[in-house]
């Protein structure tokens, strides 16, 4: 298993990916215990991606996608949010904390917010 244990980020490359690139352009790097996976769109986040990440030992999984109305594939962000909710319900059912999976809307200009979120975590 080749992943950091603390946090896995499944990111829409059109919004979160851009925000990360902006953060990295200022010379900052992700904390070593965070694994970042860029996906083409929030809509390509599969329930199985999230479950596999938890199975692989991630403490938390973030799904970052565009704001409502900002998805270039129209509803990719909504699918991402729905899948997160579905996984949360599943975790609740089996007695794991649903807060281990988080959906967050982000835009390409939110590098500062992204940094703050990562520090908070």
């Amino acid at each position: 298993m080749s992943m950091a244990q603390r946090l896995l980020v499944l990111a829409c490359s059109r919004s979160a990916g851009e925000a990360l690139a902006a953060l990295e352009a200022t010379g900052q790097t992700l904390p070593p215990d965070v694994t970042w996976v860029n996906l083409p769109c929030g809509g390509s986040v599969d329930v199985l991606h999230i479950l596999r990440a938890l199975e692989a030992g991630a403490e938390k999984v973030w799904v970052l996608a565009c704001y409502e109305g900002a998805c270039e594939s129209l509803e990719g962000n909504r699918w991402a949010e729905k899948r997160v909710q579905w996984v949360q319900a599943l975790l609740q059912e089996i007695g794991l904390g649903p807060e281990r999976v988080v959906f967050r809307a982000i835009s390409p200009t939110m590098a500062a917010d992204l940094k703050a979120w990562l520090e908070e975590e």
Binding site: M3, H49, S73
Partner: peptide
């Protein structure tokens, strides 16, 4: 290349070519 079909496919018959997802994550 948004991958919405791939994420929806109930038998995982669709894959995004040219998209690198770590093998331990691939569904």
């Amino acid at each position: 290349g948004c991958g919405i079909c791939a994420a929806h496919c109930p038998v995982q018959a669709i894959a995004l070519k040219g998209q690198a997802v770590p093998s331990w994550l691939a569904p």
